[in-house]
Design a protein around this nucleic acid. Sequence first.
DNA 1: GCGCTCTTTGCAATCGATTGCATAACTAAC
DNA 2: GTTAGTTATGCAATCGATTGCAAAGAGCGC
Lengths: 358, 358
Amino acid sequence: MRKAQVTIKEVAVKARVHASTVSRVLNAETRGMVSKSVADRVLAVAQKLGYSVNPLAAGLRTRRSRTVGILIPDLTNPVFPPIVRGAEQTLASAGYVVVLADSNNDIHNARNIVNNLIARQVDGLILATAHREDPIVEECLSRGVPLVLVNRTVEKMPIPVAAVTTDDNLGIRLALEHLLELGHRRIAFVGGPQTTSTGYVRYRAFLNALKARGMKADKSMMVNASAFSEAAGSEALSKIIASSDVGFTAVVAANDLLALGCFDVLLANGLRCPIDVSVTGYNHMPFVDRFTPPLTTVHIPHQQLGIKSAELLLERIEDPDAPARTIYLQPRLIVGGSTRAIGANESTQRAAGRSPTR
Amino acid sequence: MRKAQVTIKEVAVKARVHASTVSRVLNAETRGMVSKSVADRVLAVAQKLGYSVNPLAAGLRTRRSRTVGILIPDLTNPVFPPIVRGAEQTLASAGYVVVLADSNNDIHNARNIVNNLIARQVDGLILATAHREDPIVEECLSRGVPLVLVNRTVEKMPIPVAAVTTDDNLGIRLALEHLLELGHRRIAFVGGPQTTSTGYVRYRAFLNALKARGMKADKSMMVNASAFSEAAGSEALSKIIASSDVGFTAVVAANDLLALGCFDVLLANGLRCPIDVSVTGYNHMPFVDRFTPPLTTVHIPHQQLGIKSAELLLERIEDPDAPARTIYLQPRLIVGGSTRAIGANESTQRAAGRSPTR
DNA sequence: GCGCTCTTTGCAATCGATTGCATAACTAAC
DNA sequence: GTTAGTTATGCAATCGATTGCAAAGAGCGC
């Protein structure tokens, strides 16, 4: 049997004051209205009875639930837990509680979840599920829900949207230039879904970075995968191999999972990584430096993404009409064993094993 | 500006009925009380105005929030996301929303979070943070909160507690017998914290399994780590090596992260895995088969743990006084490249690389 | 001692739903 | 055509807090 809850009324009776006085004592901003002696008495009684406010009731009246919704596309993708954790801890220390939902990469799901969260009076939303054109985001905006996008963002909205992302242009350039320095010239690209900003921006970034070096892109060596997954990565690289023989000595993948898919395809085609083909990933998932071979990848500050997006959301909850900002965080290259200089021999490779630091 | 919400009253006015009638139409169980014609009219109006119930208000009256809290010790441990996902999806399809919290392995945190969740009127809790003796669990029980423990459980409670765990006795036996079959006889054990049931049971299981084979345990080759982490695993194995030279040919670790810590220590001591020392882990974290070497581990059905715990919780919410059940799920051995027969030569090893399936 | 300001507290409405009870309307039976 | 028995709907209290307003009381000056 669920124990009955202590209410403000009981405290009021036991402290011989009115419920409204108890309420004022318990709220920091109104505490000053009541005399010290009464306040102390009320506090003592509340303490003794083990009273704690019912946020549902309070929220009903104040229209603030002190709850924030976070929607992510796939909790089992190791990129998201640190983001969630960063956001959760930041929000918790501001007195907010997080309702986490996982759309399982399904837009229909996502729409239901968002509606549900809004109905539950969340004070704001953090979405990691945005698409470049995203009706869900539009609807949130038009409903006036404080909103922050994380990791992915949207394009050409009527109203600017607050977001926290990484500078993917820079990230891809770091990966590409690393390969160029190692002597690679024929470099394939396995991109992500072009419906997401991360997929699109990384694709454009690859083209731009080549151009900046005065090189021309070979479109037959570029394929965008249908999802950010190992299976989709395998499929994409298989297509490249099928269409153009193996004309490349390196692959830039738009995401670590895609890179892992590439590992599998290379293996299946008798190509050794990095001896025959170098591979770079993106995201610096946990443990990639333990893989065979340790993956060269682009690190993004996951936890910071979460922390910053939470901070931004708190700002927006405070002042919903302030102009929406976008925060860009800086990526950085992590060199592992999956890339090597062209023409380097086996012994060089051995020396380039994973570093013991973690 | 946040748009005002459509209330049941507005619907009532527009449909020219009383609010209570609207409420009855909207609730499946009371729908039958109102005539079809009125019901249809109300539904049409509700639809047109885009009405959706305010669960806070409803919950205040009904004392059910249709919300469930899930508390986990560390979201960035890859074991938990699939559990959370399984639970979340099961609960969602029953109309519940999940409030996820991460205690960051801190009991003080955990206590605050649980209190907060209960104050927020969650209908039940799923805890993945239990310790063998756990005052938080006791308090939940005495407060009458529907509760299910997942993965870990508690001991000798005054009231039995519902839980979903795996049969760790069997799991450890599988790992140990695998090593015995490969010819290993001197086997070290790196355990987990004995304050958790998983740590304790796996430790006891190792002793029991040896005994069942008529072998005696060498306590100098057994150390329990202070946490389920890579760093703690390294520390533990270092202690074993320091105290007894390297008298072992294999290590059973109570968890994959501990096993990874062991990898590092072996490397640092010039010991090759699996040539010199075989290692087994526990949990079958994602991607362990891509590690160097691919880790032999014990698979536990993560998602099923989540699903079953959600189902059990729904049962308990429905009938809080039904006897608490514990569900045991079966683990299974995943053989990777980190274990090999004693005396096998290098070429055998090559053939035992990771399988291409994933 | 009167009136004034200021502080402290209580009253009652309110947030948006749910639900026991009363009542109106309708049906059926005699 | 009256009565009993359903059935459909409305009324009003309630869940547990918050808050604008009113009122009581304290303090002060003249």
